[in-house]
């Protein structure tokens, strides 16, 4: 009961924040001078990019806890987060390429952060592949956890290598000049809205997964009863 209560609140919060952020992105915030209207994608791109990282952090934590405790709920957490994470990583790639087209004139550019996101996307794929190709379900969970841990540890190294690779000093990327206060505020609201959405999706997915597990368990029980009843 408590959990669905929490989910209701989260739904309301993310709905309100999302509405507010849409208003701010399209009405409140002024158009950026040099890049023009396209710059508004920024308020979508940054939050989805943030979520692709946040999701992987949760995958990492869930994976460690699963390996340590072998309780399926930690696997459910990691797996649910990975499922949401790969969607947001895909969205990051799409918005990134929408951004690249007007700004650089190409759909894809080997810009360091975009490149790193692409590698992250492949690691997410590897996470699901490791799970699906294992012979038994519980081993798949373990293998996925291993990929989740190695993948997350790799993220900063990938970021560093891709940045150096394009000959850009890493420090320069973090703050390229300040944002105007109204822009910063809009960005913050978008970030909050998307983070709330992520939490909601995560809780929803976890509860679905738990229901699935419970159904499987009950099916197993009836099958067994059936078997033992045969003699």
């Amino acid at each position: 009961m408590g959990k669905s209560y929490l989910r209701n609140i989260l739904s309301a919060v993310s709905f309100l924040l999302m509405a507010a952020s849409l208003y701010m992105v399209f009405v409140y915030v002024p158009t950026e001078a040099t890049m023009g209207i396209v710059q508004r994608i920024f308020y979508l791109m940054v939050p989805v990019a943030w979520l692709s990282l946040l999701s992987f952090l949760i995958v990492f934590i869930g994976s460690i806890l699963y390996l340590r405790k072998k309780q399926s709920r930690w696997d459910v957490l990691a797996r649910s987060s990975a499922e949401i994470g790969i969607i947001f990583t895909t969205l990051t790639l799409i918005t990134g390429s929408l951004w690249a087209r007007p700004v650089w004139g190409v759909w894809w550019t080997w810009e360091p952060r975009l490149t790193a996101t692409l590698v992250l996307w492949f690691i997410y794929l590897a996470y699901f592949l490791a799970r699906s190709l294992a012979a038994e379900e519980h081993r798949g969970a373990t293998f996925a956890a291993v990929v989740g841990i190695l993948g997350f540890v790799d993220v900063p190294i990938i970021g560093l290598a891709t940045t150096l690779w394009r000959g850009i000093h890493p420090g320069a990327l973090i703050f390229q000049g300040g944002l105007a206060p109204s822009m910063l505020l809009t960005l913050m609201v978008s970030l909050a809205a998307f983070t709330a959405l992520y939490s909601l999706l995560l809780l929803q997915r976890i509860s679905m997964k738990n229901d699935e597990i419970e159904i499987k368990r009950l099916l197993g029980l009836t099958a067994e009863r059936h078997n033992t009843g045969d003699r």
Partner: peptide, 22 residues
């Protein structure tokens, strides 16, 4: 321990070693 072992390794392995290759 997986079903398609020759296929699995590159897909798991290559994204992780990207920084090393670069």
């Amino acid at each position: 321990n997986t079903k398609a072992r020759e296929m699995v390794l590159p897909i798991l392995f290559l994204p992780i070693v990207v920084p090393l290759i670069i």
